[in-house]
Computed example of a mutant assay.
Amino acid sequence: MLEKLTMYLAFPFVRYALIVGVLIALCSSLLGVTLVLKRYSYIGDGLSHVAFGALAIASVLNLTNKMIIILPVTVLSAILLLKNGTNTKVKGDAAIAMISVGALAFGYLLMNIFPTSSNVSGDVCTTLFGSTSILTLTKEEVWISGVLSVVVVFIFIFLYNRIFAVTFDTNFANAVGTNVDFYNLLIATITAVIIVLAMNLVGSLLISALVIFPALSAMSVLKSFRAVTFFSAVVSVVCAFLGIIISILAGTPVGSTIVAVDVVLFAVCHVIGKIRG
């Protein structure tokens, strides 16, 4: 098995997949703790469906660089969800569900009306659940993912104290002069960027798992925000690395394998947390 793994690691596309997978997992875990604590977990699922709809539009238009449409549309949707989430007529959860289902249906409808290949069902399944596309990344795509990931990590570290304050006590943050609306908007925007980056890794329907499971695993065994964030990042990176390696060796779908590893680790952490009380 080690010889087989060494042979695979000699190929650039395998190394690219590991680099991008680890970076995406790291970014997802950092924001995941904040999203879970603020009860924004479902926003990741909603935005992933929006990204699917945008991807369908980009495919119909035969764009070479689909990121030109997917990223702006997803970021704009995140901003709209945050701004209108407190509307008395359409509450936050209802707005997310409405946009999520609408974008998913619209994307699937477009892909059927204007098919870009003879196997529409296969294309849709690939987009929703992930595929081997993470193993066909170009050097340019790796650089784009790397730069965006570094920006996300830098913003989180540089604004850590403000994000911490906004996460736990918005009233106190407002009282000390923190612009809560701006930081909530920033969190939503970064979440949208992570969703777009993660589509090649796990597919639209499984993206929320990268955000939720590492955070919940860390919360099962630790208590402080800093410790939970650090442990969540480590857990997420390890699960992504193991998932990609297992997927390559066993020939299983990359996204589903990563999520399965996350689920197993969450179960282990949950049991440990119960034992420790």
Rank of each mutant, 00 (worst) to 15 (best):
156 F>R: 04
178 T>P: 03
122 G>A: 12
168 F>Y: 06
158 F>I: 10
125 C>Q: 13
132 T>N: 13
169 D>I: 08
183 Y>I: 00
126 T>D: 12
122 G>Y: 05
150 V>I: 15
159 L>A: 02
170 T>M: 10
129 F>A: 10
176 V>T: 03
178 T>H: 02
118 S>V: 04
119 N>Q: 08
132 T>I: 09
158 F>H: 05
181 D>A: 15
162 R>Y: 15
169 D>Y: 01
144 I>P: 00
167 T>W: 14
181 D>P: 10
130 G>T: 06
129 F>M: 09
116 T>Y: 13
154 F>G: 05
179 N>G: 04
148 L>D: 03
127 T>D: 12
171 N>P: 04
168 F>C: 11
126 T>F: 14
118 S>P: 07
182 F>Q: 06
181 D>C: 12
135 L>S: 01
149 S>H: 04
127 T>S: 15
121 S>C: 01
114 F>D: 13
124 V>M: 09
182 F>V: 09
130 G>S: 07
137 L>V: 05
169 D>G: 09
181 D>L: 15
171 N>M: 11
121 S>P: 01
141 E>M: 07
128 L>H: 03
123 D>N: 08
164 F>Q: 09
138 T>W: 14
146 G>Y: 00
171 N>T: 07
156 F>W: 13
120 V>L: 06
148 L>E: 07
124 V>R: 08
175 A>V: 03
180 V>H: 05
152 V>S: 04
172 F>H: 05
138 T>L: 13
149 S>K: 04
144 I>N: 00
143 W>F: 14
157 I>F: 12
136 T>N: 10
132 T>R: 05
136 T>S: 14
176 V>Q: 02
117 S>P: 02
152 V>C: 11
155 I>M: 05
173 A>F: 00
154 F>P: 02
144 I>T: 02
116 T>M: 11
146 G>P: 06
133 S>Q: 10
183 Y>W: 12
